[in-house]
Design a protein around this nucleic acid. Sequence first.
DNA 1: GTCTATATACGGATAGAC
DNA 2: GTCTATCCGTATATAGAC
Lengths: 234, 234
Amino acid sequence: MTYREFIKTAKISKEKLYREIYRANRDKIQVKKEATVVRNLGRIFDAALKISNEKGFQAMSMRDFSQETGLSLGALYTYFASKDELLEMILRQGRELVMRVLKTHLAAIRDPAARLETAIRLHLYLTEALQPWFYFSFMEAKSMNPVAKEKTIASELATDQLLAGILEEGQRMGVFKPRDTTLAAGVIKALLQDWYVKRWKFARRGIEVDRYADFVLAYVMSFHKANDGEAESK
Amino acid sequence: MTYREFIKTAKISKEKLYREIYRANRDKIQVKKEATVVRNLGRIFDAALKISNEKGFQAMSMRDFSQETGLSLGALYTYFASKDELLEMILRQGRELVMRVLKTHLAAIRDPAARLETAIRLHLYLTEALQPWFYFSFMEAKSMNPVAKEKTIASELATDQLLAGILEEGQRMGVFKPRDTTLAAGVIKALLQDWYVKRWKFARRGIEVDRYADFVLAYVMSFHKANDGEAESK
DNA sequence: GTCTATATACGGATAGAC
DNA sequence: GTCTATCCGTATATAGAC
């Protein structure tokens, strides 16, 4: 799988996404014309992620936000009841999309090495496609209310456990060497996170997501794969 | 080297540190009795890092801050002219300490494998000792003014280059396998950062810094070391 | 649906008493 | 040196016109 192929198959259509959000939040959104909601939700999410990723969600004033979206303060408050509710809408939207894509793509694969490769590529491609959201979720975790924070932490630990599970299975089957799976899963997670947290660094150096994915895979496999081919860890 | 040994030799004494800060900022600090300044700077730095690491520097109100330090608003403003100046004092203090320790310890070592090991251990031990500062510097980068941000980015890139330099030297000497040094340095950096960014995760799992250091070293060496001992990558 | 105008609270920072 | 009281700007959120 390459990034291009991923994008084609995953079909992360923004419009479909906003339509779903609208339907899930009919009660909270006062505006009733679906076409209007979909258009404005797009502006709202884009602006919130843009400004927040520059200076932080809570440093983003509603006046900044109003200007960036092109909507007045009054109009904005017909889409959410408070800044905190906006935060939760953004977080939930991303979380659910990520869960869905990960589950769909991993379900069919049984071979541990292939599962590990798919999990790593998938995560990198997903964060590439949704970089602003992942960065946002990562950076804003500490200013979240307890419930939102809990969910973000749970999602972090779930990724670790998914990876650790694949490693354990591989060790049982003898395709991976015996290694501490908890620490090893943490290492992989750190490398995956680096891709969206340090995007500016990779961009500056002209490194594309496929090249990074190949490198991380070689690195990880050289540590785990039972010796049937040093040649592969290029 | 272990963490205990590092702590003994590095002698990062808080009191000495605050005394230095006072001397470097005589012009900005209105209070003149050195003993008073040293005591209060201690409270100020501890409180600022504590609150900021819980909810962010700019979410920390001066009233929160006053309560945590036990000093009144008026008193606080005799130690710095503005919240932004406080931010810069904190950043500078840490930066200079880190630079000094890194240079001192690495200067004498020539062998690339030993240099790599020392750089990795040193960085981990340093971030362990100064975890609140590193976390602060990492998380607040985006809300810094342009000058402070520039310095933080430069320091990030300097670490990458230090590591890349060691890897290149090792490859020239034939002790490391040929690998992309820029990407590999980035990987190591990501693993070092994970230690202080995700402290809560490691603490929850009862993983100590020495164990993490051993693991990272094994991981990194298994990728780089020319084949004279698969046995070492335990 | 969207706007402008405004209520109300809280932010950083300073003046001046002790 | 440190305090309390206060200035003044800006924050979120809402009311009510169009």
